[in-house]
């Protein structure tokens, strides 16, 4: 059984990236089926991109991976999601422990306005009841902000409120916040779609840097971004009235270079989208 305790007890021993495997995941909202038997392996230390036109279930699938899907009252699912071989929906693992190990960054940056930048970074620890000493705290804040590529810009104003930053900076703060709890996986739901190109570039840089510690799964509308940042890719599609499915998945180079399915070829060549 996967351990529930946190590895922050011994900061020098950080958790390693995990592999996530979805097996035959189907999802419903009420009686409306939105995902049809999606199976996908997201290997450790890689960036897996989920691409496809809007409305085909990519975000729903992503939210199933960290158990945010069940927050909607009428949501159901079937299938399994295995984190290093252990099903996260099985009774042994609590929801909160799962979400500590599988973090999420949202489309619209959402730092906590009532907290300073420093407090935002350590918010995850406070919320999960993880104790940390004063010096370790300062070190953790610096480390997380550095990994997120934000340290140099905010190191002199750590006590200002989290919302005093620009959009791109706020998003990097959210990334730092997610990294501070030392997750094994980081899910990103169109993290750059609300940002300008410069901020987008910075975040793509960040993704490239942190993937050595964290497995990343990113939903993106932007095919060029998927081609830039990911090593693995999954193409989702839902035609009129049918639930979303994976049409083709595999190495990014193949998906974009020589896709096997004609629908994939049409999408990546911009013939629809």
């Amino acid at each position: 059984m996967a351990p529930v305790s946190t590895t922050l007890d011994r900061p020098e021993q950080r958790s390693t990236a995990a592999e996530l495997e979805a097996r035959e995941v189907s999802a419903w909202f009420g009686t409306n089926k939105v995902l049809e038997q999606v199976s996908l392996t997201m290997p450790r230390n890689t960036v897996t991109a989920l691409i496809g036109p809007s409305g085909c279930g990519k975000s729903t699938f992503l939210r199933i991976l960290n158990r945010m899907h069940e927050k909607v009252p009428s949501a159901h699912l079937s299938g399994e999601v295995l984190l290093d071989g252990y099903d996260i929906y099985a009774p042994g693992l609590t929801v909160t422990a799962t979400r500590k190990r599988i973090g999420m960054v949202f489309q619209k940056p959402n730092p906590f306005p009532a907290m300073s930048i420093a407090d935002n970074v350590t918010a995850g620890l406070k919320l999960t009841g993880t104790k940390i000493g004063r010096s370790e705290r300062a070190e953790l804040i610096e480390r997380s902000l550095t990994r997120a590529g934000l340290w140099n810009e905010v190191k002199d104003r750590l006590n200002q409120p989290g919302t005093s930053l620009s959009g791109g900076q706020q998003q990097r703060l959210c990334i730092a916040r997610s990294l501070a709890v030392d997750p094994e996986l980081l899910l990103m739901d169109e993290p750059c779609s609300a940002l300008d190109p410069t901020s987008t570039y910075r975040i793509e840089q960040t993704i490239a840097e942190i993937v050595s510690d964290v497995t990343i799964v990113i939903v993106t509308h932007n095919m060029q971004q998927a081609a830039r940042v990911s090593q693995q890719c999954a193409f989702f599609l839902a035609s009129q009235g049918t639930p979303g499915q994976i049409v083709e998945s595999g190495e990014t180079a193949q998906i974009f270079g020589s896709p096997r399915d004609p629908r994939t070829a049409d999408y990546v060549n911009g013939r629809f989208g």
Partner: peptide, 17 residues
């Protein structure tokens, strides 16, 4: 959602947000 995604319990979310 940000609070929940960090692994917060319901009460933690209420207190922080």
């Amino acid at each position: 959602e940000a609070a929940y995604a960090l692994g917060s319990t319901k009460w933690g979310m209420i207190r922080t947000v």
